[in-house]
Design a protein around this nucleic acid. Structure first.
Lengths: 215, 215
DNA sequence: TGCACCATCCCATGATCATGGCATGACAAG
DNA sequence: CTTGTCATGCCATGATCATGGGATGGTGCA
């Protein structure tokens, strides 16, 4: 008979006492879960995070002494293997997104049945990210390449710009492209004119803003 | 009595004849959907895409004359407002991810009930991205910041590096930071020594690789 | 106490950059 | 034919950068 898996150790930061107790009780009554800590504010939550020893952090955002997003960030930095679920309201899509950008891997909706919350905990611990298609769509917007703008630069100019971005001197670029250094300088003049800049760093910054080269 | 909404115009690229007909029939029999075109290979699919006039592209990946990923890319570039769903097998998680990176907004699983496919079409058309928590997790890995490496640079050095990245001269940086230009040059020497580089562009490149500054 | 790092500042100087000006030939579009 | 772009190439020159060398005072650690 194999030994049972270790319970999911959960810490909870939630300032609403009723919800904190309700969630805490629900977790404590699950055989595969363990309530490893509970906090009512950011400072106490931060102490729990600093101490470690948890698999999942449930984190409310509106805390009396600060934003739960900071706590999410701390957890993600300090314990990147630990999962974080935001405890939030349905209307708070922007906040969910901000939390995800800070390191959360899903959310638990206030007002949902406890069974939903427990399922989200199990899902995130199992390596998933329980998010809605709407949130997923917002995420896709952040990772899918934008439709290409027509580039103001010619292919040759882009080729040279990539070398400049690596830090090669004109002479080195010339060698790499099989040109004269004078030609490189001529291309640079054209590139800077088109991008309306006056230095390499400015050009690289602008090219990055315009999506012309990979950052 | 309000007029009914326009049907979802769907084009389909799928080389398996049985599945193409099956999907096509399912779509055509839905009151809110319209099969706007059907192709059995990449070239015909590309012609459908080029013609436009569709809201959702259903796209198989393994086509006899090339990869459906190219078609997805074309659709995303040419018609960024159109939605794309990959037609794929459950085991093809890597391909789903690659498709999503190319511009798809969800997937339809071969072998699933038609009702699932139709639901996915409606979901994506309604602005969602119907993806599993596992796929979502993989996506999060791409957008969430990696745990910060300890930076070799001091805060002051980082502050200066950000200004250098914008293209400010030493004199300008000095003015902005309330320092002497000599001090700026001294900081630059330290920055370049720590990053083991010899020019601003090299420093910026390296800083970007190390995640020290935002690209 | 000694050492390293941080932050600040300075000098001197060679190397590189940036840019105005010039040129040629090829190609495409009106 | 004219014009503009692209790709290539050159000259001259002032501005800026990069860097070796030097300095001070403050802080933290062994």
């Amino acid at each position: 008979m194999p030994v049972s898996a270790a319970p999911i150790r959960i810490i909870l930061t939630e300032d609403d006492p009723a919800l904190r107790v309700h969630l805490g009780d629900a977790i404590a009554s699950e055989a595969d879960m363990l309530l490893a800590g509970s906090a009512a504010n950011l400072a106490d939550g931060a102490a729990l995070v600093a101490r470690g020893g948890y698999d999942v952090l449930l984190c409310d955002l509106g805390l009396p002494d600060g934003s739960g997003i900071d706590l999410i960030r701390q957890s993600a930095q300090r314990w990147p293997e630990a999962d974080v679920l935001v405890v939030t309201m349905f209307a708070d899509q922007d906040k969910v997104l901000a939390s995800i950008m800070a390191g959360a891997r899903g959310y638990v909706l206030k007002g949902d049945a406890m069974a939903e919350a427990l399922a989200a905990i199990r899902a995130v611990h199992a390596g998933g990210s329980p998010i809605s298609p709407t949130i997923a769509r917002q995420l896709l917007r952040r990772i899918q390449p934008a439709p290409a703008q027509p580039s103001p630069l010619s292919d040759r100019e882009l080729e040279l710009l990539r070398l400049l971005a690596r830090g090669f001197s004109y002479a080195e670029c010339a060698g790499l492209l099989g040109l004269s250094a004078h030609t490189v300088a001529s291309h640079v003049k054209n590139i800077y004119r088109k991008l309306e800049v006056n230095s390499r760093a400015e050009a690289l910054y602008e090219a990055n803003v315009l999506g012309l080269i990979q950052p």
